[in-house]
Design a protein around this nucleic acid. Structure first.
Lengths: 151, 151
DNA sequence: AGTGAAATGACCCGAGA
DNA sequence: TCTCGGGTCATTTCACT
């Protein structure tokens, strides 16, 4: 599905979306046209999901990450839907995964400080269908990358 | 530090880095020059960390996420440094956080399948300074966003 | 699938308010 | 800080290989 050239394009664009088609073409010893067409194809197929600017959370005053572990005592389709829909609308929740573990969900929450996290928890606690199991504060970020490893 | 216009620019670019300066200018009823200068300033100050293409992990054949919980029995500066340096070089590790909890580190690992995760664990186990505490498999992604919430 | 060239349009940098 | 306008260069399309 993805040949060597596609993977090469993706690897470069995952690190720097501002590379021009010309630069990509030079890097892989081709002309601009095939690069252009391949990128359009990858976008159309949804392999490339989009292009985003990454903001430094610290400098934007949102340097605190907290993981929130949640379980759902009554595990019905309805409850799942309403919880997942809510989570997707909360901007503080950057990531949410349904786990195969002792707790059902893990949320990665991005806030200014613990005080703001406290407010977030109070907001979340309004939903009666979930049980907030525990919260784990992040001391510091060791690594944050958006790059999907491609073989 | 960041005024209303800056926040507006960041909000738009965090969702779509391909917006042209012209489009941004129209969206906030300004001309291109001030937008251009503000963006350059935000980049220079490091508020904008970079621009990246987001790849769909599923379509790239890397649809499995596993969280790996690690503790460090002998917590010395040396051990911390060598572990954190290693983690930053491993492409499967997309995120790594130092936690204030019962385990020291949480790694978000991106792999093709559990078999590949097994290989990753074996690789990681070579470092004698850490103790792999547990692994939690993700059943499905509810939300993944790179957008830092700005007030 | 890739090349090369031509037109379209965005970026960037002035001068001026 | 913002507006306006022009030079420069990347993007995009197309006819050909």
């Amino acid at each position: 599905m993805l040949d060597r050239t596609d993977v090469q394009i993706l690897s470069l664009l995952q690190n720097n979306a501002k590379l021009t088609i010309k630069e990509l073409a030079e890097a892989m010893h081709l002309t601009t046209s095939p690069i252009f067409e391949r990128i359009k194809k990858l976008e159309k197929e949804g392999v490339i999901d989009g292009y985003v600017a990454l903001v430094n959370a610290e400098k934007a005053g949102k340097g605190q990450i907290v993981f929130c572990n949640i379980s759902m005592p009554v595990y019905t389709t309805e409850n799942i839907e309403s919880f997942e829909t809510l989570v997707r609308t909360m901007p503080q929740v950057m990531e949410c995964y349904h786990l195969a573990g002792v707790v059902d969900y893990q949320l990665k929450v991005c806030v200014k400080d613990i005080k703001e996290y406290d407010a977030f928890l109070k907001e979340l606690a309004k939903i009666q269908i979930i049980k907030i199991h525990s919260s784990t504060v992040v001391l510091h970020d060791v690594k944050y990358s958006t790059v999907i490893p491609l073989d």
